[in-house]
Design a protein around this nucleic acid. Structure first.
Lengths: 204, 204
DNA sequence: CGTGACTTTTACCGCTTGGTCAAATCGAGA
DNA sequence: TCTCGATTTGACCAAGCGGTAAAAGTCACG
């Protein structure tokens, strides 16, 4: 077993693969898919370039590993939206969960953002597959609530995308947010602002 | 006058500089600052690599030219927001203008987005300068309207950022939007959705 | 139509970068 | 402690890239 992706058996392999992925996440988020170099990742991880290539088949393989693992994390809160729950509670809960994700995992958010902005060359099929279906399903649920008069009328898919746009903005465009807000911590005010926004928009 | 940026005198210079900038916009938006190569730009422009370097001092110079010219275009609609106008009309007008900008100039929007997501290495100072001041000023106007009871209470700066996030989303994350909406044209529905969203949020 | 400036091309350079390879080193079990 | 597989390193390539130099070609104008 000389290269490629060895079976994760030993402690060292588990640890070093994790270290490399963490380092790569930072470097890819900061410099983009192409701007990142194996040397940068190596320095961040404290490993030499050939050593990194002992654990991963190549730079692209690291990027792919990172991204495919990410989509699930990203969609989990939307999966958790309960059709049987109280509409306003469920939607506001989703907004908060998504905002929390941006606050806790800003690097992941930015990595995802760059991939999408540049046309999703890698996860395009996933977008048209599981993402599309999940959104269609949840949009139906939301529009069912609207038709039942439990929330104001709304386009479910555009509502979901609005939630994405508003929550991810605070992570993806963090430097701009910081500039506008004079480096004050944005998160508490953001939570209140989005709470107000969606409450007013959806209350009957 | 052998290289660098020759004075734009001749027709050929004006035309070729424009052609190069247009080509570079597309390539930078698709591949990012680092992923773009002079050969790609050359192919897109129909010019050879050395010929491009006859008109621009280097790859970075093209990128800078593109970005610095962009910020003004991007902020113009916010400047046009009239403190003396009707609050709801002004804000909804700004939303529509910004959405229209995203629809008409998606490449520019994506170029701007990548720059910000990766930390705004080039225009960071502009963000903390003119952008910060303009937003602070307009936020004051909006909050004045709110205090006068002409619109619902709202954090002016977060409202402005919300407008940015929601409108730019349709351009920056275009492939994701297309995947979710099954490639249907998103713009009309987006305009209605955002109109509804901000009307409900701001009406007293 | 000739001339000097403007424009384009061909050939090339040096550096960076992803990746390879073989040798050296380490580490856990017999 | 010995051994063999797992891990790490140093030396090295080949390709891609930004950029340069100088010659060749083109254009406007007297």
């Amino acid at each position: 077993m000389a290269d490629g992706q060895p079976r994760v058996r030993t402690r060292i392999q588990a640890r070093n693969r994790a270290v490399i992925l963490a380092a790569a996440l930072k470097v890819f988020a900061d410099h983009g898919r192409r701007g990142a170099t194996l040397d940068m990742i190596g320095e961040e991880a404290g490993l030499s370039k050939p050593n990194i290539l002992y654990y991963f088949a190549g730079k692209e393989a690291i990027y792919e590993d990172l991204l495919t693992g990410l989509l699930d994390t990203w969609l989990d809160p939307l999966r958790a939206l309960d059709p049987g729950g109280d509409p306003m509670t469920e939607i506001l809960g989703y907004v908060r969960a998504k905002l929390d994700l941006s606050r806790r995992l800003p690097l992941e958010s930015r990595l995802f953002a760059t991939e999408i902005v540049q046309g999703a060359p890698l996860i395009g099929t996933n977008l048209r597959g599981e993402l599309r279906e999940l959104v269609a399903d949840r949009a139906k649920v939301i529009e069912g609530w609207a038709e039942a008069g439990r929330i104001a009328p709304v386009d479910g898919r555009h509502l979901i995308m609005s939630i994405w746009a508003l929550t991810q903005h605070y992570a993806d465009f963090g430097v701009q947010v910081a500039a506008v807000l004079d480096d004050a911590d944005p998160w508490d005010a953001a939570a209140m602002h989005l709470d107000t926004l969606f409450t007013r928009m959806l209350q009957v």
